[in-house]
């Protein structure tokens, strides 16, 4: 009970659950739609040099997340590339990037990096599944006078419900155990502004050797994962029922 009380107090203090939900939100409502959209553009041949485009979007996935974390940490540093670019654009040499010093805005650079890194994965998953859709169906719809928007909403999306659910589950579980990128990029700081569940668990377990609190946090992570996955499946059934 003491450990649970301690954990609850720490959750209140740091608000790290909110931070975890921000990461989940960016993953589910950022990476998946973006990956889907880019895959659809390639599928409909709206992009020239689609192979190169595909490779560029997927490229971050072949780099170690530790390296990515360090790289972007340097880029967003007050003496890094991003502030220099802003200085050049705004013609203000005294501009200093302190976005990470704001409790409300500290997750923005992290959200951006999360999008940059993981969108490629979803692009590949969606593209592979889009290529499995029978082109005759789309052709038939076009002959019947369906617009691009109607084809997308009435034909493409319903055929990819299963993939959307799968990617959502991947995004949720991936977000909850998200550790390496944030750990190297911010270490959970400044203060507790970017301290996620996994970083908190790591600190308790391996810095303070408090395995009790560490395992309690892990349990919370597992429970949250299960609840969110059940929620996703519930939403899928609802959507399918409405579609039928």
């Amino acid at each position: 009970m003491d450990r649970v009380g301690k954990l609850y107090k720490n959750i209140q203090r740091s608000g790290f659950l909110v931070l975890n939900f921000i990461v989940i939100f960016v993953s589910v409502f950022g990476q998946i739609p973006l990956g889907f959209g880019l895959a659809y553009l390639i599928y409909r041949k709206s992009v020239k040099g689609s192979g190169f485009f595909q490779a560029m979007v997927f490229l971050p996935m072949v780099i170690s997340t530790i390296i990515i974390g360090i790289l972007w940490s340097k880029m967003f540093s007050p003496i890094g590339v991003v502030p220099r670019i802003i200085q050049a654009i705004t013609n203000n040499p005294n501009y200093s990037m302190t976005i990470m010093n704001s409790k409300q805005l500290a997750m923005i650079p992290i959200g951006f990096v999360l999008l940059w890194v993981y969108t490629g994965t979803y692009l590949i998953i969606f593209l592979a599944n889009l290529q499995n859709i029978d082109p005759n169906i789309i052709e038939a719809a076009q002959i019947d006078g369906a617009t691009d928007g109607q084809i997308f909403i009435k034909i493409i999306v319903p055929q990819l419900y299963g993939v959307i659910v799968l990617t959502s589950i991947l995004a949720i579980s991936g977000s909850l155990r998200s550790f390496d990128l944030l750990f190297t990029m911010t270490g959970g700081g400044p203060a507790y502004y970017t301290n996620l569940l996994a970083i908190y668990m790591y600190n308790y377990s391996f810095i303070h050797y408090n395995y009790g609190v560490g395992s309690a946090i892990s349990t919370v992570m597992v429970i949250l994962s299960i609840v969110l996955v059940i929620l996703v499946r519930f939403v899928r059934r609802k959507v399918e029922t409405m579609g039928a």
């Binding site: 540093s77 007050p78 200093s96 990037m97 302190t98 010093n101 400044p190």
Partner: peptide, 16 residues
Amino acid sequence: LPPQSIQLEYGDGPNL
């Protein structure tokens, strides 16, 4: 202490 000092990596100090 300027606000950006909290964002500077420890290793940046000597060079700066």
